[in-house]
Amino acid sequence: MHERSVALAVLRQLDHIRESSGVRRFVRVTLELGELSGVEPSQFVEAFFELGTQEWLSGVELELRQTPLSAKCRSCGSMFPVESYTFLCPLCGSTSDLIDGDKITLVSVEAKVDADQSEDDNAAFLAPLNSR
């Protein structure tokens, strides 16, 4: 139900990247959706293209990868894939901590950039948020 607000958050991040690293147009956007991220992929795709009508997104390909749930047992330390949302360790029955599968991650983008933008600028756009 809130796929629109997730799509808006992704579009804001893309806009931020565009402004700070000389992107003219995005060609491909790759996202990871955790199994427990609360995002339904088909609804997300619909919202993304409905809201992402900017020229710098025209023709963009959206690649979604789903990340399964995995957890680590607090007692015996074993790592295991979480089946049917059961977080009890299959080996010893203890409680576990979630390792992966609950987040929405913007993994990477491919973009047309001005040729004079050097590779060194790659991480420049990350600075303002990371320094918070």
Binding site: R24, I104, T105, L106, V107, E110, A111, V113, F125
Partner: peptide, 14 residues
């Protein structure tokens, strides 16, 4: 100015 395609690794929680 010429254009080139570049991959930018982001790896950030939305």
């Amino acid at each position: 100015m010429s254009r080139t395609i570049r991959t930018i690794v982001v790896k950030r929680d939305v």
